[in-house]
């Protein structure tokens, strides 16, 4: 009987593929939210596996804050070209220009929260009824309560206290017109699982995950990359450090870690010995104890 054992990563892969196929079957117009970050790269690989030898039956969509790492955007465009996939890009800047959103004030104004507005507008524009996200439950405590199939009302809101129970492998994607679902196939994956999967599947990732020299400024303990979107405060200065990024988000809120890891195995060793969560480098989560929950309720990723 021993030969009928699936390893944990194979089980997680099988689960994610099952979820993706379930979405393709239950929804009219799904979309996969794609940022060029490691989790969304894994998602694309799983989508390929789920529908092979056919192409996966949904487009990719990126909500571009305009504050991205240029390396991540280049990587995104390369990858999409290689896949021959359909990529939709919607810009936070357009939402601002249309007066639907307004930039924050302050020394590192984040467009993180504004993405929600652009995202919900895009979901409405294309009439998407399910949007895949790469979020994992191990990332953050509000996400630990998230379902695989997460219902959103007609305002795109999440109601954490009134979620549908999910039992066995029976997923209920029924909804009323105007409502949609966020679907998280990587729910049960950990950061380590994602890296091990990237290594074992030999997936390409943007080079900012690997060590490089970069000018950074230390602010509230976070190492923020030099960019046009950050204003130096009194006494602050840029300095060159050897760093890499554990997550890829906006330049204004994604902190670097000092590291010389230049290959996947080194990254895996670093993740194994890390004493900080990966979102520990994200200033957007530090705003309050319930920062993520509050953003998610409004329709954030």
């Amino acid at each position: 009987m021993a030969s009928y054992n699936l390893t944990h990563l194979k089980q997680l892969e099988a689960e994610a593929i099952f979820i993706m196929r379930e979405v393709a079957a239950q929804f009219e117009k799904p979309v996969l939210l794609f940022s060029g970050g490691k989790d969304s790269i894994v998602m694309v690989r799983l989508a390929q596996k789920a529908f092979s030898p056919a192409k996966f039956p949904f487009p990719l969509m990126h909500i571009d804050t305009g504050h991205n790492f240029v390396e991540a955007i280049d990587f995104r465009d390369d990858m999409v070209a290689k896949l021959g996939a359909n990529l939709i890009v919607r810009y936070v800047q357009d939402s601002i220009d249309k007066g639907r959103a307004q930039d924050e004030k302050g020394p590192n104004p984040s467009r993180n929260g504004l993405q929600t507005i652009t995202l919900l507008d895009a979901i409405e524009e294309f009439k998407f009824d399910a949007a895949f996200g790469g979020a994992r439950r191990d990332e953050e405590k509000a996400r630990a309560k998230e379902r695989f199939f997460s219902h959103r009302d007609e305002f795109g809101q999440w109601d954490p206290k009134n979620q549908r129970p999910e039992l066995w492998n029976l997923f209920n994607g029924r909804k009323n017109p105007g409502e949609h679902f966020r679907v998280f196939p990587l729910s049960n994956w950990t950061e380590m699982d994602v890296w091990q999967y990237i290594a074992s599947e030999k997936l390409d990732i943007p080079n900012i995950y690997f060590t490089h020299k970069r000018e950074i400024v230390v602010r509230d303990g976070a190492l923020l990359a030099k960019s046009d979107f950050i204003t130096l405060l009194n006494g602050e200065k840029y300095e060159e450090r050897i760093v890499r990024f554990r997550t890829v988000g906006d330049m204004t809120c994604t902190g670097a870690v000092e590291s010389t890891a230049d290959n996947l195995d080194d990254i895996i060793q670093e993740v194994a010995s890390a004493r900080q969560t990966e979102r520990g480098t994200r200033a957007d989560d530090k705003r309050s104890e319930a920062a993520m929950e509050d953003r998610k309720k409004q329709g954030y990723f």
């Binding site: 439950r137 191990d138 405590k141 729910s187 049960n188 950990t190 104890e289 929950e293």
Partner: peptide
């Protein structure tokens, strides 16, 4: 207890998954 209401009330409302 990841949700605001859970922390406020000191109770667990929902299934939490840990790894």
């Amino acid at each position: 207890d990841g949700l605001r209401a859970e922390r406020e009330q000191g109770i667990t409302i929902d299934v939490a998954y840990r790894y």
